[in-house]
Amino acid sequence: MEIERIRPSLNEDTKPYWDGLKDGRLLFQKCGHCGTIRHYPRQVCSECFSMNVEWIEASGKGKVHTWAVSHHAFHPFFKRDLPMTFVTADMDEGVRVCARLRGDGVIPSIGMPVRVAFERLDDDLTVPVFYPA
C-alpha cells in the first residue's frame, strides 16, 4: 500500500503561501498597514493589529540560525529520506524559514549563507529547500 505523505491543510490563511511555492516563489506576509513582514502566515499583525495583508516575494537569501539531522523518521513516508538535515535560516527579510538542506556532504554551521530552491513533490505540493549559497 502506498504511504500517504503529510500535506498542509491549505486553509484560507495558508493557501497563498503554498500556491506561491508551486509557482517557484517564496512568499511572506507583509502588513498592509505598518509594513511589518511576518512568517508563518497568520491573521493579525502583532505590531499594529491590522488584519490587512499583502504578500511579497522573498529574496530567498538567508544565513543558518540553527540546524539538526534527523536519523529517525517518525512517519513512514520519510524513512526513504533518512538522514534528513533541517536548517532554520534567518532570512534577509527578518523572518525565519525552516527547510531541508540539499547539497552533498554539506555540514552546516551557524551563519553559513544559504539560498532557497523549490522541489516539486507532486502536482499539489512544492516545498522549499536550502542550498549552500
Binding site: 505523505r5 503529510i6 500535506r7 498542509p8 491543510s9 486553509n11 495558508t14 503561501y17 508563518y40 540553527t66 540546524w67 539538526a68 539531522v69 534527523s70 529517525h72 523518521a73 517518525f74 512517519h75 520519510f78 529520506d81 534528513m84 533541517f86 532554520t88 525552516c98 527547510a99 531541508r100 505540493l125 516545498v127
Partner: peptide, 18 residues
Amino acid sequence: GEFEMPLGQIAPVQLYAQ
C-alpha cells in the same frame, strides 16, 4: 503541522534538536 510536518519535521525531538 501546516508548515513543517510536510517537510518531514514532525516529532518534538526534531524540533528540540534545533
